[in-house]
C-alpha cells in the first residue's frame, strides 16, 4: 500500500475489520442523510402554518435562503388525519420512522459483519 513504506508495505495488509467498519459507517451516515432530508423538508413544506425566519438568528437566517414559501403556508382547515395523526406528521415522521426501523433491521441482519474485536473481553456477560 502507498500509505506505508515499501518494506512494511510488503508484510502488512489493511485490516479487514477496519474496512468493514468504515464501509458500514458510511452507509449509516447515508441513511441519516436520507432520513434528514425527507423528514425536515417534508415537515417544513407541508406542516408549517407559515415559514418565518428565526427570531434569534445572527447574520441572516437559513429560512431566508429557502425563501418565504408563501404558497406552502398551511391552511389549518385542510388538516387530514391518519389514525388520529396529523397528515404531515404521518408522512413526514411516522412513515419514515417505520422505514428507518426496517432499514436498521436490514442493515444489522444483512450488511453488518460480526468481526472479531480482539482480546480483553470478559467471560461472563452483564
Amino acid at each position: 500500500m502507498s500509505d506505508l513504506g515499501n518494506n512494511t508495505g510488503d508484510r502488512y495488509q489493511e485490516d479487514p475489520r477496519f474496512l468493514n467498519a468504515r464501509r458500514e459507517a458510511w452507509m449509516i451516515l447515508g441513511l441519516w442523510l436520507v432520513a434528514f432530508v425527507w423528514t425536515v423538508s417534508y415537515c417544513y413544506l407541508f406542516g408549517y402554518l407559515s415559514h418565518p425566519p428565526s427570531a434569534n438568528a445572527t447574520g441572516g437566517d437559513i429560512a431566508r435562503v429557502v425563501g418565504e414559501l408563501e404558497s406552502f403556508n398551511r391552511e389549518p382547515t385542510s388538516l387530514r388525519m391518519y389514525f388520529g395523526i396529523p397528515d404531515w406528521v404521518f408522512w413526514g415522521i411516522a412513515v419514515p420512522w417505520v422505514l428507518c426501523i426496517a432499514a436498521s433491521f436490514a442493515f444489522c441482519l444483512l450488511i453488518y459483519r460480526e468481526d472479531e474485536l480482539g482480546d480483553g473481553a470478559d467471560e461472563d456477560e452483564i
Partner: peptide
C-alpha cells in the same frame, strides 16, 4: 419533528 431524528439515533 423536534424528536424525529430518534428514528436514526440508535443506528447512528
Amino acid at each position: 419533528l423536534w424528536i424525529a431524528s430518534y428514528m436514526v439515533v440508535p443506528i447512528c
